[in-house]
Structure formats: C-alpha cells, structure tokens
C-alpha cells in the first residue's frame, strides 16, 4: 500500500488536490490511499511520527506563512523519517528555490501552480502514476541501483542507466558514464568492481555494463555505447567480451 499525504495551506486548493488524486486512484484501481490532507506541516510530521507508513508519496507546498516550518525543512524531516518517500512540490513559481530543493530533497517533481488548474491536475495525475510506478518497481526489486558516496552522502542511479565506469586521468578518481548523467568522484575502480560484480572489467581502466553496449568494433577492439562513447577492451579479454556482448545484443 502506497500512502499519499497532502500538505497545502490554502484549504480550497487542498480539497481540490485531494479530490483529483482520490478520483484518479479509484479510476486506475491503484493500491494507494490518501492518508492525510492537512494545511499544517507540523500536523503532517506528528502524524508520520505517530504511525509511519512503509511507503509514501507526498505533495507539499513550499511556503507556509502561518507556520514556523517551511516546505524544505518538512521535506528534509520526511527524508530522515522514512525509507521510501517520493516527494512532489506544488508551488508558485516565484517562491521556488529550485536548486536548493533539487539538491537537498531530490524531489520526484515540481508542480508549478502558475500553470493553471487543468495543467496542475494533469501534472498531479502524472505524478501519481510515476510515484506508483516507482513503488511497484521498488517492491518487485526490479530497480537495481548503482550507489556511490561523496562527502558522506550517498547518491544512486538505476543500474540500467549505467554505461560504464572509467578511471579519470588523475589517480584516485573515477568517472561514471550513464544515460543523461556524468559523475566524477574520488574512488577506486577496484572497490566498485568488488561492490558490483555485474559490471565487467574489460580493461584496466574500464568497468562496463554489458547490458548497455550497443555495438562492438572488432578492428579497434572497442565497445560502443548508445551515446557514442567507446571503451577499450584488453587484447586477452577481447574474445570473451565479444561472445558475451553478442549474447547480450541478441537477447
């Protein structure tokens, strides 16, 4: 069961969001329920502490002029409290400190109120869909994650998005090449290889996710990825890699 929580200080809007979401859950027959719709972030947190849900989806406003607490603090508190929490911010454009929210909370989405009612409703429904999809993925454990640590914080991305990990030009740094992402951080290729045995060591400086290889160039002995990147393959491993890749490409 995925629990939905709404927090918005405009009571009329709160009721409207609640109606939209409830109706959408019913139509799609999702395993979801609206647990709480409140104008007060304090009440929301108290409720969460009293009976914490296992899986939850939040729709939060950002500014609460009547309360001491802001939407950002609330979201950070929620992240600390719950293991699985997807957060969507519903806010007017002007009050949005986009980057701060993006980096500190990693919300699933922002719904901008200035768009007009129909657009907002559409966005809310999309996010219910998307949150439910993430929830089912999580339950089915289909979402295999690649996690890494920088400065005491853990970041993760779906393993299916990872193309390959390479050593950077300076020692003690590695670079992760993924779909729409590029990350360089201090680390060792060997540690990553130990942690993720599903990644294949094609060369001393490359760890490859063979699932994502889109082609193989036998002449230069390189693997080709959908984004045009290429990685070297060690001569003595080339034959083995080639058979593996061909198997992957067929399936």
């Amino acid at each position: 069961m995925l629990a939905v929580y709404l927090c918005e200080d405009n009571l009329e809007q709160l009721q409207h969001y609640k109606d939209v979401i409830k109706r959408y859950i019913m139509i799609n027959d999702y395993d979801m329920v609206v647990n709480l719709a409140t104008p007060s972030p304090k009440e929301l947190l108290e409720n969460l502490q009293a009976n914490p849900p296992e899986y939850a989806l939040f729709f939060l406003d950002i500014e609460f002029p009547a309360e001491k607490m802001s939407g950002l603090e609330t979201a950070i508190a929620i992240r600390k409290l719950l293991g699985f929490a997807e957060i969507v911010f519903v806010t007017t454009h002007s009050e949005m400190a986009l980057l701060t929210f993006e980096r500190k909370v990693e919300p699933m989405d922002f719904v901008v109120k200035d768009l007009g009612r129909t657009q907002i409703d559409q966005k809310l429904r999309e996010n219910v869909d998307y949150g439910y999809q993430r929830y089912t993925n999580y339950l089915g454990n289909t979402e295999n994650l690649f996690s890494y640590n920088i400065g005491g914080r853990t970041f993760s991305l779906p393993m299916g998005d990872v193309y390959f990990v390479a050593t950077a030009e300076t020692p003690h740094k590695v670079m992760v090449h993924a779909v729409n992402q590029l990350v360089e951080f201090p680390g060792f290729l060997k540690d990553i290889a130990d942690q993720y045995p599903e990644l294949y060591r094609t060369d001393k400086s490359f760890l490859v996710n063979l699932d994502n290889v889109s082609g193989i160039d036998s002449e230069t002995r390189r693997l080709v990825f959908p984004n045009g990147d290429e990685t070297d393959v060690a001569t003595r491993r080339f034959h083995e890699v080639k058979t593996l890749v061909q198997k992957h490409l067929k399936s």
Binding site: L99, E102, D109, F110, I150, G151, F155, A168, E169, T170, H172, K173, N180, Q181, L182, V183, E184, F185, P186
Partner: peptide
C-alpha cells in the same frame, strides 16, 4: 580542475528539461 583537486567531485545530469 576537478581532476586536479583531491576533494572535488562533479555531477553532470539532465533532468526534467534542465541541465545541472
């Protein structure tokens, strides 16, 4: 420069029509 600085890491990502 990131390469050269020991305590630095870099993330580049495209998310929701924004480049970060």
């Amino acid at each position: 420069l990131i390469d050269r600085t020991k305590n630095a890491a870099l993330q580049v990502a495209i998310k929701r029509g924004m480049l970060y």
